[in-house]
Amino acid sequence: MKKSIITLLVLAAVFTAFKSPKKESVVLNDAIKISKTSTEDNVDVTASILTWKGSKPTGSHDGTVALKSGNLEMKNGSLIGGVFVVDLNTIKNLDMEGSGGADKIVGHLKGADFFDVAKYPTSTFTITSVKNNDSNLAVTGNLQIKDVTKSITIPATITTEDGVITFKSETFNVNRADFNVKYGSKSFFDNLKDKFIDDMMEFSFTVKTKA
């Protein structure tokens, strides 16, 4: 009996150790009023990308979205502003690329109860302030998805090589329910059982300027 109890305790410890940590969403605040933004379009949209990942009980899917336009505003070698316009019509699924499954996933993502791309073809991230923490940046900006705009802060780095400026964020989590993205969400629907899709989505930006 004592041996069985010890075995159960060991198994419990093992499962606890390998349990995935709970994903925490970026903190959402009211959108920050912006007096003006730069109109310069200096982002190379062919070299810039937003990556995404969504999860469900049976696994996860990941992919990319291209930028439609944007700019990185610099002053004395430091980032002071910028706007990234994400073209939601370019959503791609990578883990099932080349299959009908990828088309089905993209169809869900573009649908009216997910990103509703027909009505909201773009999303934007507009930088409102930047704090330099040693080699890392804390970048605050207004994130617009569908008809909701909230202020978030994400960690990022910025580098320059051969005249090309690269903005690269760390992966950050967004609770899609906060932006009225409803498909398969337990925040909006009951009795989904194991057919739900996690509200938390992972994103990261890589944005490069034109040479």
Results as ranks from 00 to 15, higher is better:
P57T: 09
G111Q: 11
D134H: 13
T171F: 08
I152T: 02
F196W: 07
S129D: 13
N132V: 15
T140W: 05
F15E: 02
D194K: 08
K182H: 04
L94M: 11
G101Y: 03
E40I: 15
S60Y: 14
L72I: 15
G77R: 08
S185V: 03
K104E: 07
V86Q: 00
T122Q: 14
S38Q: 12
A12K: 00
P155A: 02
F188C: 04
A138S: 13
V117N: 11
D30K: 12
P21M: 09
S187E: 01
K2A: 08
I91T: 04
S187N: 14
S129K: 14
A31G: 14
K150L: 03
S55H: 06
N180V: 01
V83F: 05
S123F: 08
D44V: 05
K68D: 13
T51W: 05
S135A: 08
G70T: 12
L8E: 06
N136G: 05
K92Y: 07
P21Y: 03
T124N: 10
K23P: 10
F167C: 03
K68V: 04
E202I: 01
L109E: 07
F167V: 00
K210F: 04
F114S: 10
D178W: 07
S25Q: 08
K110I: 08
M1N: 05
S123V: 10
N136A: 15
N175Y: 04
I5A: 01
T51M: 13
L28K: 02
K186N: 09
D147A: 12
S55I: 00
I145V: 10
G98H: 10
K168A: 06
F114C: 10
F115R: 07
V106H: 06
A156H: 01
H61P: 00
V106M: 04
V27G: 00
F205Y: 03
V139F: 02
M1F: 12
V26D: 06
D134M: 11
N142C: 07
F179N: 13
V207W: 04
S187A: 15
I152F: 03
I32K: 11
V83N: 15
N173V: 14
N136R: 13
Q144A: 11
D113M: 00
M96W: 14
L50D: 10
A102W: 03
D147K: 05
N191R: 06
A177S: 12
A156C: 08
T160F: 01
L94W: 02
P57F: 02
K119V: 15
A47T: 03
D190G: 01
F167G: 02
A112V: 15
N89Q: 08
K33S: 15
T64G: 03
D41C: 03
A31K: 14
D95C: 07
L137P: 00
D147V: 02
V26R: 09
A112F: 14
T124A: 11
A31Y: 13
K146G: 04
A138K: 02
V106G: 10
S35H: 13
M201P: 01
D162P: 03
V26W: 08
F115V: 09
V14R: 01
V164N: 08
V139G: 06
N133S: 14
T7I: 13
